[in-house]
Design a protein around this nucleic acid. Sequence first.
DNA 1: CCATTCATGTAATCGGTTACATGATTCT
DNA 2: AGAATCATGTAACCGATTACATGAATGG
Lengths: 201, 201
Amino acid sequence: MKTVALPIRICQDVHMKLSTLGYALLGLLIDQPQTGYALSQNLKNPVSFFWHAQHSQIYPELCKLEQLGLVQFEHIEQSERPDKKIYNITPSGLIACQAWLEQSPDVPKIRDELVLKVFLLRFAKPQAALSMLQQHALAHRQRLEFFVEKLADLEQKEGSAIWKPSSKWFGAHAALRRGIGYQREYLEWCEWVMACLERGF
Amino acid sequence: MKTVALPIRICQDVHMKLSTLGYALLGLLIDQPQTGYALSQNLKNPVSFFWHAQHSQIYPELCKLEQLGLVQFEHIEQSERPDKKIYNITPSGLIACQAWLEQSPDVPKIRDELVLKVFLLRFAKPQAALSMLQQHALAHRQRLEFFVEKLADLEQKEGSAIWKPSSKWFGAHAALRRGIGYQREYLEWCEWVMACLERGF
DNA sequence: CCATTCATGTAATCGGTTACATGATTCT
DNA sequence: AGAATCATGTAACCGATTACATGAATGG
């Protein structure tokens, strides 16, 4: 039996599997053609409270998307800045991203170090456990405040547009609401655990 | 050139860094000496709503802990079952685990595919997005119900002991409360997004 | 003088998943 | 006859993080 060397396959198959990062990049490129650098800024703390990535992951992923024919780039020479590549999404990239958007993802399994520690709480000194929890609760409170501020900013700038699912700002609005709900609930739980500890053994 | 075989280093340094899984295993071994197999059952879905691992990760990790002197094992020969190794935590293992327990972990960065999809919602067909969300919400509702049932079981079996931080059941109680709060909040958010979609564009 | 921004990449390593591998016993 | 339980391991792979590498311009 003989195998034939296949040419690079321009993949228009909607059912192929990309990493989530790949789809995230496609999604950001629907909005705007941009460089890998700009994409890495978009996916950097704290703008992305739902997905993040380093440039060292983004550049190779863009190469992969390009080889699959899901994005294209234009090389721009610059004199005072390093040259750059502006990436565009292709029609098949758009189709692939939309197909992904319409599939319900698996419910992610939680892996949370603090919950693990609380599970093992009885093996720690109560005082040390309490101050550990206080520190952690503080971090959550700060994140919560950060999200609340961001939402207030967005509401002020964009007004009622943030409520329309077709608007450019709905996505950020929804993500911020998720972040606020998550942090608030987490904080309440931390306070519940601390109250149990203070009520005593 | 000749290499000299170094003796195995028994590490008593409290400040060394293990993976979270390593500490999880140590914590479970404080409770009870047990085999790698039993540990993998403990860290298997759905008993662990906060940390999980496969046996292929657990066996090598136990070797590492043993080489560091944090656990020991006893080889048990069996006739009707495969031979097994029963692991025990050592005094330095206990110290290392307690030191870890008392440190506040970094607040984990959320990486949630559904939130990413909702962020990009305007690029999907509204009908498809709605049914995707309905499916996802259903999965969260089921997990929520599962946790609620588990908590009811625990409460019934162990009574008021689950409220004492020093009790064996407090950890599971707290973890279940966290799971319930998390799923409930998530579900409410899904419903909010769906309501926005239904209210229209 | 030093840090930051723009801009792109590679290499090493780590944590985790999936699959491969073996093999007796017990339950359906 | 086939699946599940007990029991232990290895190997390949993938996604993500950290560090290495370069280099000009701008701002404090």
